[in-house]
Design a protein around this nucleic acid. Structure first.
Lengths: 264, 264
DNA sequence: GCTGTATATCTAGTATACAAGATATATTTG
DNA sequence: CAAATATATCTTGTATACTAGATATACAGC
């Protein structure tokens, strides 16, 4: 270890011991009240939403000073948010020059889709093995809500319910962390999706596919469930080239691909 | 250079336009020289290494002030490093109280192992489809180095080569990003591994298994390659309970598991 | 001696000031 | 008029000072 702590108590009047600071990391310790929502967290969430919804399209300059005024905070917490977003790949920070919304990296898009499919196959299989009746019912409720939103044409709420379904399956399988991983990789895909036009009747289709997956899970037919989920997710393999040509400035080909790129 | 030019010759203050700041995010722009390695980056790497090697065991208090002295920097860049580590789950920051090295979350351990297996099945299959002869040879070289390190008994270098092999397969499959994802999830597993005793003869076994996987890849036998890789990775399903009882303070059961936890 | 309260002192969060570098504009030069 | 140079000004990175909250210790009351 290092340096026994100074301990300069001296002859000062009410010298207390320099405090132990041996508090454990708080498993269930106090301070487990409520998140007061740090300023940086608020800014982070807001900026992230804006980037993903293309409110802030790729290549948009991010001027810290301007944002401090907008949010009414100082640079320090703002910078914290910016750095988090940079680490997630949503912002590009150029050292003494400027910060910009990142272009959508095509390679990551592709890999995220592939990885998601692989991971969801796992969660579905796990869910089939250990799902309880109550969880099945909860998932049915989510699907129902999704259908309601589809009928209303509320795309935003629809996608939210869509996520809830997939997250629920992961949770039912005892693997909620895997859904978190999927979300992490998915940020760029989310931006991509905003550029695509909603396909007619797609939402109703999704509801049907979800139902089929859940039916298979309930019946304990793991292989069926996995196959159905795979088919469902394969629909996400969108034709990237089209959109790359439509909004060339929004994408970047950080192609690590040494071959013409074969979807499989 | 301060100089305060002031340029007081003309009557007009020579007002320049307020600057456009429309610089694009720099695809191949200048500023593409070399990473000067920011201070926060150095601290981040160093702390991360220390945490993963259990030099800083779980529950160790992280005192920012002390570290600023040790590294000779101010709180700002140090804080940046701390926040990054907190986001990765290696540190727990308790708002106005203190920061501590996180306990190893058992659920994440388990999920990381499961996710890795799923993802590597994908990379192996991809590699089988598109690997070039030169890449095969490169992977053979890595295996050979691994054998050398095993013979020398240099565990650290052995594990490094081990990672290189798996990373190489992902790259060969055109999915290098997926290895990055695996690394991200693996931080906790890395810490866990340091707590386990090296098993006698394990290193030589690994070399053999790697060779088998690569052989299958070279022969284009995707199913075999996947099966062999799966078998190889299954060895990582270590008996967690044993170590949880040995170092109870190092782990935390953030069990999201609603059932006795079945490995599958 | 034990329990409950007070408070000194530590912590992370935030604000602000300064430094070093990059770049667009203005100016100079041919 | 065009190209090269100069420089003002903007950027991010860093240092330091301040604020508010949490907690271990000291102390009072029983």
């Amino acid at each position: 270890m290092t340096t026994s702590p100074s301990t300069a108590q001296g002859a000062l009047p009410k010298s207390r011991k320099p405090r132990a600071r041996n508090a454990p990391p708080a498993p269930g310790t106090a301070a487990r009240t409520q998140k007061p929502a740090k300023n940086s967290e608020i800014v982070y969430q807001d900026l992230k939403r804006a980037i993903i919804t293309i409110d802030l399209p790729p290549a948009t300059p991010i001027v810290e000073k301007e944002l401090t005024k907008r949010y009414g905070i100082s640079r320090t917490p703002l910078r914290e948010a910016v750095l988090r977003l940079a680490e997630e790949g949503l912002l590009d920070v150029v050292p003494k020059s400027g910060t910009f919304v990142s272009r959508i990296p095509l390679s990551r898009l592709r890999e995220a889709i592939i990885a998601r499919r692989a991971l969801e196959e796992v969660t579905v299989r796990a869910a089939t093995r250990r799902t309880s009746q109550s969880e099945i019912m909860g998932l049915r409720a989510i699907i129902l809500r999704q259908k309601e939103m589809a009928d209303l044409g509320d795309e935003e709420a629809f996608h939210q319910a869509d996520d809830a379904f997939h997250a629920g399956i992961a949770a039912a399988g005892g693997l909620p962390g895997i859904w978190q991983m999927i979300l992490q990789m998915r940020v760029h895909v989310d931006r991509y999706r905003r550029l695509t036009l909603p396909q007619e009747g797609r939402m109703q289709f999704v509801v049907g596919e979800h139902t089929a997956v859940l039916d298979a899970i309930e019946e304990g037919e793991a292989d069926d469930a996995v196959r159905l989920m795979k088919t469902h997710l394969d629909k996400l393999t969108l034709d990237i080239e089209v959109f790359r040509d439509l909004w060339p400035a929004y994408f970047i080909v950080d192609a690590d691909l040494h071959e013409p790129l074969t979807f499989f």
